[in-house]
Write a protein that binds this DNA or RNA. Structure first.
Lengths: 335, 335
DNA sequence: ACACCGGGTCGAAGCGCTTCGACTCCACCC
DNA sequence: GGGTGGAGTCGAAGCGCTTCGACCCGGTGT
């Protein structure tokens, strides 16, 4: 491996000069800079990350904690993760991938060992165990999601309350008076993952406001679970004409089952999905949906991290405004 | 941050002793060890990763390069990535997430800066640009996938040829004589991603062996593309009774369209999928399938890396044997 | 003419850890 | 009883980089 010292020698300058050429923290004459840069090229020099971290106490690494569960909103997670990684690179950072498995201990480990300059946490629960550790560690952090208490934390998330409200508004505007909400798996609510509850809150509030009846049912993905859930819904509320689905794995089963029961979409029932664009456009009926802006969330979280590391203040909570795209799964309520 | 020196002082020993307690590279008396461990606990000491990397030229980090494309076999990628991350942790490694975006340059960067001890590459193409750089860098590496030339490389992958053969064997055994293969998107073949081609090779070979006619059609996912592909297939080969699908995004559309056309599964046509278990069991018909052992692939690749880093020799190419699970989508060919 | 300033460069002191050689005991053996 | 060897510990020398203070020197103000 080529070292700074070798570059310095090759260029006929001191090591510190090379360092300053690299960092730009002191002015260097154009001629020296040229010479040094040339030597760097020629020798194929790459600064040693460890040495750099040690000397500067900056690692240029951002740790990303993704949930362990691989059975839920996987594409969204992946999209966020990739957006985080690519955005981080454009700011000169690399990303360390941590899974939820290690749990809160991971926070302590990363902070303690100075493995990363900052952390991004995904899949935040309302009363997330990691938060106390995070606060106490003093490490820069950004959450993707919204815990109950956000004091002192920077958060990025879709505005799920507004999302829920938007869905109801759309359906109510089309004349639907009874709406069923197909939610995430029960486990998601038990863990008090913020986004699921906030969506329902938004839905309920707008329901009250518009005089729409709301029935909320958590639902595992897959055909079997969806079948059970659907028949219970129609048992309890035979007049249901609107559906809001917030569970990727339930989308296709729902459409299938409705079809099997002879309920036409959107003539008999309307369906609004809260899901990634791809799922909405790739479904058997092109779905009216509110997109989950995974890329945007990943990107913004990194930008917030970078801003904080640069000492720039940043908003505490950034909620992205939802956008509803009308496609072919919603229409006027039947008379 | 607490340092080694502080721990040493607190325990009344020298810094090197603490280091040896931590690494176990020299014998330490039980009493001293106790004392040191106690001090470590009490002070909440965590070794500084940068300093460690610098002094030992070991980072305990494995770099994982995932493809940038977020539109293909995402769940599989994610599952592999998570398996890599969790397995790595059990061996004391962390994982650095690199996206394909940076391309081959990433290999040079990581190797040059000693950011990681080893690399795991996913989504390997037959003539992958990263391979020359990798060989030249001399860094430890493991590929998930199989390039054309594997000399000097360690690879882990599902045995896709055997997988293809297994599918044909199953269908042929049930009496099917005309089989259509719904492949990945055309782009996948254009990039010469090894696994797709190898599957088709295996299918063709076994087709010849069993006297089965094979028709292979790449196919984008989604309903529209699948519709086109399917009608072309039945145009060219009206007698087709067996399907092999290797494209998660085409599975549900295929089942749907067959149903719409009044072709019952498995009475009229049989379908074998090559996909993750979850997709197979969560589909509208529980699918006979060969599972893609994503977890296993991630796990094995890390184990290979760890073995190589420990100086233990390891097989050059490890192909995992496919397993076909019979479910409800295949049956005897109609008379 | 002198002091002063600031751009440009260098030397040296670490950053916190690993590791090598050396040293001290003490038990053990002929 | 002196030599041997191994277990247990320490000191010191880096690992490759950043960064602070100092230095040099030519231009400026007076």
């Amino acid at each position: 491996m080529v070292t700074l010292a070798e570059v310095a020698q090759h260029a006929g300058v001191s090591a510190s000069t090379v360092s300053y050429v690299l960092s730009g923290k002191r002015s260097i004459s154009a001629s020296t800079r040229k010479r040094v840069e040339h030597s760097i090229q020629q020798l194929g020099y790459h600064p040693n990350a460890g040495a750099r971290a040690l000397a500067s106490s900056r690692t240029n690494i951002i740790a990303l904690m993704v949930p362990l569960r691989t059975d839920m909103y996987v594409p969204v997670m992946m999209e966020i993760a990739i957006a985080v990684a690519t955005t981080a690179r454009t700011h000169g950072y690399d990303v360390l991938l941590l899974t939820g498995e290690e749990g809160p201990a991971a926070v302590r480990r990363i902070a303690g060992s100075s493995l990363a300059d900052a952390m991004i946490l995904m899949d935040v629960e309302l009363h997330d165990e990691r938060l106390p550790l995070l606060r106490e560690s003093g490490r820069t952090a950004v959450l993707i999601g919204l815990p109950a208490d956000t004091t002192g934390l920077t958060c990025v998330d879709l505005d799920f309350e507004a999302t829920g409200a938007l869905c109801v508004e759309h359906l109510a505007g089309l004349g639907h008076r009874e709406i069923a909400v197909i939610g995430e798996a029960p486990a998601v609510y038990e863990r008090h993952t913020g986004f699921a509850e906030r969506t329902v809150d938004g839905i309920r509030a707008k329901g009250r406001e518009t005089g729409t009846r709301i029935l909320h049912r958590p639902c595992e993905g897959g055909f079997a679970a969806m079948g059970t859930t659907l028949s219970r819904i129609f048992d309890e509320r035979p007049g249901t004409t609107g559906f809001i689905v917030q569970n990727e794995a339930a989308v296709e089963p729902l459409l299938n089952l409705l079809r099997q029961q002879g309920r036409a979409v959107p003539e008999d029932v309307s369906v609004v999905a809260i899901c990634p664009e791809q799922v909405a456009t790739g479904a058997s009926v092109r779905l009216t949906s509110v997109a989950i802006p995974a890329q945007e969330m990943g990107r913004r979280s990194v930008e917030q991290v970078v801003a904080k590391l640069a000492g720039r203040a940043s908003e505490e909570v950034e909620l992205l405004a939802p956008e509803l795209t009308v496609r072919e799964s919603t229409g006027p309520a039947p008379a």
